[in-house]
């Protein structure tokens, strides 16, 4: 029985690889796009314009306040009604990129706000332009604070990519769902799916922890 199941699982090997490839492609592409967009939004949010700040803040709240599954459905089913033709893959990329951008925007904005105003004043006093102040003084310091949560966010992004299986994309989770229809051993099938995610996510979790430890060491914990 179990032997037969294992054999049957071996037959699904190419499908599983395709699923893993899809998961990595989806999260990889939206990770890059989301980071770029998120940084831009984060810088804009702290640029001093009240209007921009609250507009971005509202959008971030709308995205953070609704389940990702609902966001995917909205994009996949409603954009076509507005005349935008898109396939499931594009819809998935748009949804994931948007989600990542919103979270990364908040991380970057928090990082920028954590830089003491004295730093900006020093840069102002030495005559740096606004772009130079951002590029040379503020962002490098903000990055130190932002890096650990940023890596943590990437882990969440990879995991959230599993939700796009709901619109029929054959990612790792969808492959598990397909295989379990033929091989009725959910424990085995989804344990293997879990291992697939674990292999991708766990190194990132470890990296985030290391960065966090290094940062708290650099800041010098208060000895009481």
């Amino acid at each position: 029985m179990i032997w037969f199941q294992l054999q049957s699982l071996m037959g699904s090997y190419p499908l599983a690889l395709r699923g893993l490839g899809m998961t990595i492609a989806l999260s990889g592409i939206s990770l890059v796009l989301g980071t770029i967009l998120g940084f831009a939004l984060g810088v804009l949010r702290t640029s001093g314009s009240r209007l921009l700040d609250s507009a971005i803040g509202l959008w971030v709240d709308l995205i953070r306040g609704t389940p990702f599954l609902v966001q995917i459905f909205l994009i996949f089913f409603i954009l076509p009604e507005l005349g935008v033709e898109l396939d499931a893959f594009t819809a998935g990329i748009i949804a994931l990129t948007n989600l990542a951008a919103c979270f990364i925007c908040e991380i970057v904005a928090a990082g920028i706000r954590s830089v003491p105003t004295g730093q900006v004043e020093a840069a102002l006093a030495s005559g740096l332009s606004q772009w130079q102040r951002m590029r040379q003084v503020v962002l490098p310091q903000a990055m130190r604070v932002s890096l650990p949560p940023l890596v943590g966010q990437y882990v969440l992004l990879i995991k959230d990519s599993s939700v796009v299986s709901a619109i029929g994309l054959t990612d790792l989770t969808r492959v598990g769902w397909l295989v379990v229809q033929r091989v009725p051993n959910g424990l085995l099938v989804f344990a293997i799916v879990g291992i697939g995610y674990f292999v991708v996510c766990y190194p990132l979790i470890l990296l985030a922890r290391r960065l966090e430890r290094r940062m708290s060491a650099a800041h010098g914990e208060v000895q009481l």
Binding site: P184, G186, L187, G194
Partner: peptide, 23 residues
């Protein structure tokens, strides 16, 4: 804790949904 954090909730949900009847 690590196993939960490194895998998606949806996979965990399916693990239980398709797996528990097996037990």
């Amino acid at each position: 804790i690590d196993a939960i954090r490194a895998t998606p909730l949806l996979a965990q949900l399916y693990f239980l949904y398709f797996g528990l009847p097996r037990l």
